[in-house]
Design a protein around this nucleic acid. Structure first.
Lengths: 168, 168
DNA sequence: TGGGCATCTATGGGATACGATGGGTTGGCA
DNA sequence: TGCCAACCCATCGTATCCCATAGATGCCCA
């Protein structure tokens, strides 16, 4: 299974376009973002929506959409809870088409949520990726590293041995 | 199972390239770093990221990637906690492609973290290996030896006797 | 048992394809 | 008819690939 990994910072041009990092495009292609052809539900394009907890955008291909579906099917039909969640999860989703040069255009609403302008940072999270305003991302990342350290300690405590991935 | 062992010091050339020690390449090949073919998640290449606690880089093949996945499984999808950990674990990872001559190019971000320039030292750690600035590694090694000695004393206390593996 | 040869690894450099960017142009829709 | 989105090009810096060299190692044969 392919994963989105690494971080890349690209420029947002005057038209609001930004290149998706080539490695991410590669993963999307395999995942079936259906780049152009109406292969998947999206009919071509990537799924992108404001992250619920952070000033960032979540994005991914078909598998991301499937995950959202799976999350909803876990809830009973006709429940108000489900409807609310559906609105929250689907209501803000934008399907961004990838042009011939591997770029997308970020809608005003999405740019506003993440306060994007000038440059944007793409960060891989494995199954999906996020889009951040560079400085905001640095702060978030610093915090995330700290938590990862704590998390690792926890694991170290209940593992037999061996070295941890992020160990040092 | 193959392991990364020994230390090697190679030169970083003007283009930022450095040869991976042949023995390590051998281990990576068996581990399935998928050198070139889009066989694994990496689509070819090794996983490399800044060590959290030391000025060094951790690197390895597919098995290292699996370990990262293992850390994330168990966390519910779409939780902010998972996203944060993903950023720390995947966001810092770089997939370094091994060229036809067995070399990799170290990105600026990674070189900065480990203060690499001129020469770099590869250290085998069993399932993964690290990349250090030579002097920094010497200092670290000296310290590690001291600790190993202490550790050995502990072991000696509860062993029948005999000679210790790491003597010297 | 010593010399010579075939390999392999580590490096340096040149040539090239690809990714990221900036702009112009066309077609559609309001 | 004015604005925006999709498309097409051209440019440029850099990552990749290929080739050549040098030193070290191990092997074969005289």
């Amino acid at each position: 299974m392919d994963r989105f990994v690494s971080t890349f910072t690209n420029k947002l041009d005057a038209k609001g376009r930004v290149s998706i990092p080539a490695p991410f495009r590669e993963v999307l292609a395999r995942d079936g973002y259906s780049g152009g052809q109406p292969t998947g539900p999206a009919g071509g394009g990537i799924y992108c929506y404001p992250a619920l907890d952070t000033p960032a955008l979540d994005a991914g291909g078909e598998s991301l959409a499937s995950k959202i579906d799976a999350l909803l099917t876990g809830l009973s039909d006709y429940s108000d809870e489900r409807d609310q969640l559906s609105v929250a999860l689907y209501g803000d989703v934008h399907i961004l088409k990838i042009d011939g040069d591997g770029r997308i255009v970020l809608p005003e609403e999405l740019k506003r949520h993440a306060k994007l302008e000038g440059e944007v940072t793409f960060v891989g999270l494995g199954q999906k990726f996020q889009i951040w305003q560079p400085q905001a991302f640095e702060a978030y990342r610093a915090d995330a590293r700290g938590r990862a350290r704590d998390h690792r300690q926890l694991f170290a405590g209940r593992r037999s041995g061996g070295d941890e991935p992020s160990g040092g």
